[in-house]
Simulated scan of single mutants.
Amino acid sequence: MRIVLAEDSTLLREGLVRLLTEEGHEVAAAVATADDVVDAVARHRPDVVVTDVRMPPTHTDDGLRAALEIRRRWPGTGVLVLSQYVEKRYATRLLADRPEGVGYVLKDRVAQVDDFLDALDRVAEGATALDPEVVRQVLAGADRTDPLARLTPRERDVLHHMAQGHTNATIAGRLHVSQSAVEKHINTIFDKLELSRAGGYSRRVLAVLRYLGV
């Protein structure tokens, strides 16, 4: 796939370029500022943009705002955002408008190459890819009045993997259960989160948005 990369750390940026190139991807541009990444997307029209959150010029949320602008101007472009820490508000802003083709991954995940590349592939395919630590912290914070608190430990495991963008077949393999068992757990999750009237794949997205509080 064709990728535009935005990361102000020279070491990490060059490391990502090498990794992605070795995996057979085309890195059309590798830039260091939020302004440059928007310009690069306009010029190269990549399949996916990989961008840091905190970047020049202000080193606050410039990369996130660039990601939101890219999704608005080029809705067919996947966006994978890298963050140093779990910041729920950033993940929420990314998913609030249109959760398809977007990912939020901690920078530590880059060192786990297979997980990082898997998230990249899922975003390119139009799925949602959330870092497991984001999912874990949100689920752990559910209180007794939260519908998430109604879920059994196994249902939480299934939702944990759903939120990362995995298919039913992949979830079944990871949890060592049958695919039909996963489907039953997912239907129960939809019921407990009061999503039973929503149709099709959108219920998976709505489940993710529900626990993120979008």
Rank of each mutant, 00 (worst) to 15 (best):
E7Y: 02
G15P: 01
L16M: 14
L19W: 09
A29M: 09
A30D: 01
A30I: 08
A30N: 01
D35Q: 13
V37S: 01
D39E: 15
V41D: 06
H44F: 12
R45I: 12
V49S: 02
V50M: 05
V53H: 06
P56D: 04
D62H: 07
D62E: 04
D62A: 10
L64M: 05
L68A: 10
I70A: 08
R71M: 13
R73N: 08
G76D: 12
G78I: 02
V79T: 03
V81N: 01
Q84N: 11
Q84T: 15
Q84P: 01
Y85Q: 15
V86P: 01
E87R: 10
L94F: 06
L95T: 08
D97H: 13
R98D: 14
P99I: 03
V102M: 11
Y104P: 10
V105C: 03
L106T: 09
D108E: 14
Q112G: 08
Q112H: 15
D115N: 14
F116Q: 05
D118A: 11
A124W: 00
L130Q: 01
L130W: 00
D131A: 06
D131L: 01
P132V: 00
R136K: 11
L139D: 07
A140H: 12
D143F: 03
T145E: 12
D146F: 04
L148E: 08
L148F: 08
A149H: 14
T152D: 02
P153H: 05
H161L: 15
M162D: 07
G165D: 07
T167C: 08
T167Y: 06
A169C: 13
A172H: 07
V177R: 11
S178P: 00
S178F: 03
K184Q: 15
H185S: 14
T188P: 04
L193I: 00
L193H: 02
E194W: 11
G199Y: 10
Y201G: 13
R203H: 05
R204G: 05
V205Y: 11
V205K: 12
L206H: 09
R210I: 06
L212I: 05
G213I: 09
V214I: 12
